[in-house]
Amino acid sequence: MTQLICGNCHKVYDSSKHGRCPKCKRTTTQFYEFSNSDDFLQAQIPKIEQFRKDTGLQGLVKGLNCVIINTEPENQRLAVKEILKNTGFSYGHSFQDTNNIITVLNANNSADILVKSRKIDKNPFRSYNIRPKTQNFPNTRLESFVFEVLNLSKYVEIQKDQDVKFLTDIIDRDNYSFIQTMPSKFIGTSYGFIQWHKNKGDYHPDEFKSTSSDIKKPDFEYLKNIKELDHTATRVKAQDRDSAIIEFMKLTNYKFDFAIYVNHLNSITNVARLSAKDFAMVFTSGITNYKNPEESGPTERFTYNYGPRVHHMAFNTDKIEDSFEGLKANGMDFLIQLVGSENEGLKQTFSVQSPNTLIVNEYIHRYGDFDGFFTRSNVTDLTRSTDKQ
């Protein structure tokens, strides 16, 4: 079965099912066998930049404020303890409202991590969580990336004009106003937007119940080396790679920076950045779509087994060799040893997948004035290691 890509609207579809593009109905001969490249994406960038200027979106959205991870109720406390044990994040506060139990974790100069579980059955993300290897985790995923905005009402007006769908209307609190999109059909994750009025970092709703916690952060010395959230990597289906990145750029002020192709593993690592110093958003996809376990490569196998979702959270790490040994000594297992070197500009490693969040931890250290973000050799080694999942 051949998969084609429409030269007009970039829709990917099976040639055996349609005689013409099912989206734009084009019937000309401008169809191409599907394989990802940067051509279409690069052509869209100036259009998106003009869209931002024309609508007033430019400069309206700032950097990442927090990520929201939802777990099964019995795993929420375990997930908090795990993050405290394996990162430099500290306990902030816990509370519950009508629908959720939430713990806030903080680190200096970093987006926060909110770990929560639902008290109700309703879950708009559940359909994205039912895959061959996630059957027992119907509520578990990093659900939302939350970005700070300067004027939420204006932002929502702009995006509603573009037919963006939100889960609710704007939620106004004393400390902040908040809204989030429906889960993206490309990544299964929502984008949230928050405007702070006062007490930035205080996520308590107006009516809540404080939850005391006896969870203590371990005092391992190496945890001081593990710092801010550097980036996350979301794995998406090959056919959705361009659409996922374009969607993200239209919702934020991030720009597509570069892509690293690892052809023999059928994988592309795509990086979007706000600036060199800000949290980076990484999307990883196949070059071609999933065919079967033998031919598809680790990235497409992951999306087949787990669905599109955040694969790992990466933490900037000083003294990475000492930190790596300390983590191992205290029970953390890894998919791969440290890869890279000072001469190459960086070192990285992947932990095994968390049984509580289904997320891998990456630990990364860049040396000196290295500004390449990644290297091809490291990306290749790290991608290959995820075959063990």
Rank of each mutant, 00 (worst) to 15 (best):
D163Y: 13
K165N: 04
K165L: 08
L167C: 11
T168G: 08
D169E: 15
I170K: 02
I170M: 06
I171V: 15
D172E: 13
D174R: 09
D174H: 10
N175R: 07
Y176V: 00
F178V: 11
Q180D: 10
P183S: 06
S184A: 08
S184R: 03
S184I: 08
S184L: 03
K185V: 15
K185P: 13
I187A: 14
I187D: 09
G188Y: 02
G188V: 05
T189V: 14
S190P: 05
Y191K: 03
F193G: 01
Q195Y: 11
W196R: 00
W196N: 00
K198Y: 07
G201R: 03
G201E: 05
D202G: 02
Y203S: 01
H204R: 09
D206W: 05
F208N: 02
K209L: 11
K209R: 12
S210A: 08
S210Y: 10
S213R: 10
S213Y: 09
I215V: 14
K216M: 11
D219L: 05
D219K: 06
Y222C: 00
K224H: 04
I226E: 00
K227E: 02
H231C: 09
H231M: 06
T232S: 14
A233N: 14
R235H: 12
V236A: 02
Q239E: 13
Q239M: 12
D240R: 00
I245T: 03
I245Y: 02
K250S: 13
T252M: 06
Y254W: 03
F256V: 08
F258Q: 11
A259T: 10
A259F: 04
I260G: 04
I260N: 10
Y261H: 12
V262P: 01
N263V: 12
H264I: 07
N270Y: 05
N270A: 14
A272S: 15
A276C: 04
A280C: 06
M281Q: 13
T284P: 09
G286E: 05
I287H: 05
N289S: 15
N289Q: 14
Y290E: 02
K291C: 10
K291T: 14
E295D: 15
S296P: 10
S296Q: 09
